[in-house]
Amino acid sequence: MTAFVIRRLLQSAVVVFVMSLIVFFGVNVVGDPVDMLINPEADQEDIERAIRALGLDRPIGEQYFYFVKGALSGDFGRSFIFGEPALKLVLQRMPATFELAFTALVMAIVFGIPLGLYAGLRPNALSSKTIMAGSILGFSLPTFWVGLMLIMVFAVMLGWLPATGRGEVATILGISSSLFTLDGLSHILLPAFNLALLKISLVIRLTRAGTREAIYQDYIKFARAKGLSENRIIFVHLLKNILIPVVTVLGLEFGNLVAFSVVTETIFAWPGMGKLLIDSIQQLDRPVIVAYLIVIVLLFVLINLIVDVLYSVLDPRVRIGESQT
């Protein structure tokens, strides 16, 4: 187990190193670093001073060293627009994004698993076919367009829910979240559902496929032969086994939700990291872009690591197979 965790940690370190290289060379070699890192409104003298200050007149290897050194101490430069440290801006927006992604994840589980289980147990029923057709639609509907339609129907036409913003934020146990206030909840409902839709479809399909496969397995037949109640078979024997892939996928999907929140946040003007990224790209606020990219890479590496370790706890075959190779 320890060897497995250590190997995964080393792998993650390599990934972070490679990604930092890509982001660094993307900004400094593919693009023009003077263009990228220095405020385009500065005059010639300022530009030259900035080039020296940023070390852009030094060889590229040395530059990378300073980039890593800055990044390790959390210094990605100051935002051109806000004049604040870029990393601080990104981290400030993080809770709002996490809140949205987390709510969407909960929605995916609450809607997805029961519907998938139902469709898997009664594959030929009309209701199951409707669920599956709905899940195909959920896959195919472009997230951003669904967001627009949700705004159109629930905010503009019916006027039930607010279309933009995060709403009131309350602090409980040191965590400030809009989930704790009624106003906040009404604000999060539309964006979270928008973000969750794809995942609901995914969970439905996974659960259904898992159920359909597991139902013919020997252990289910055996449980039937033992005379266990149908409920016990479904909720203990079946669910336990099909949950492993669902949990793994959902863990990985959390990162995906954070990435996709870029779209949802832009539509619903949700003040998270994703909206910050799009605003920064449009305003050419490069330090913030770089800071966002590095933060999101770290986040993904961390999520993948946690999911891998959890998976090896849930399914011992993984780590045994790994140590044998």
């Binding site: 195909i136 639609l137 896959f139 195919s140 509907l141 472009p142 367009w145 627009l148 339609m149 705004i151 159109m152 905010a155 503009v156 036409m157 279309a163 539509i267």
Partner: peptide, 28 residues
């Protein structure tokens, strides 16, 4: 998108339907 909030839904709605039909038909 900018016209949506004033109730002029069709400018976003119909291109979206076209996109949706394309994607759904390919997926099916």
């Amino acid at each position: 998108f900018e016209y949506m909030l004033s109730g002029r839904y069709w400018i976003s709605f119909f291109p979206g339907i076209a996109l949706l039909l394309t994607i759904v038909s390919i997926n099916l």
